[in-house]
């Protein structure tokens, strides 16, 4: 049973801005089952919101949703949570693209 989220106080965007990325504007390496995220089942989208360590799946207080692959850490966690339900595609970014860890 999915629990209601407690308030989120951290701004992960500021944290991942410490990382080095080569964002591939031309190729979405992760795609969800629908372009219109509001049509996706709440239970499944809620999983993505909770598990993504880069906070790329968002659900705001007014219920609006977003997903931005640009800050992806390429961990694959969303794939394990939702491939086959609302996650349609998970591929490696194109050569030279994506996150580039300097420490790891």
């Amino acid at each position: 049973m999915m629990r209601k989220l407690k308030p989120i106080t951290v701004n992960v965007e500021a944290l991942i801005s410490a990382n080095k990325y080569n964002v591939d504007e031309s190729n979405k390496h992760i795609e969800l089952a629908a372009e219109d995220l509001s049509t996706l089942p709440a239970e499944e989208f809620g999983k993505l919101v909770r598990v993504c360590p880069a906070a790329l799946y968002k659900e705001r207080d007014d219920g609006s949703r977003s997903f931005d692959y640009a800050g992806c850490l390429e961990c694959g966690t969303c794939r394990i949570a939702c491939e086959g339900t609302i996650l349609k595609k998970w591929e490696s970014p194109q050569p030279g693209m994506g996150v580039m860890y300097r420490f790891g």
């Binding site: 629990r3 989220l5 951290v10 919101v49 909770r50 598990v51 906070a55």
Partner: peptide, 17 residues
């Protein structure tokens, strides 16, 4: 563990913070 986290009342990044 993803199974429990995906239903949790906190996100992984909030736990980290």
């Amino acid at each position: 563990t993803i199974e429990h986290l995906q239903e949790a009342d906190t996100t992984i990044y909030q736990m980290m913070d």
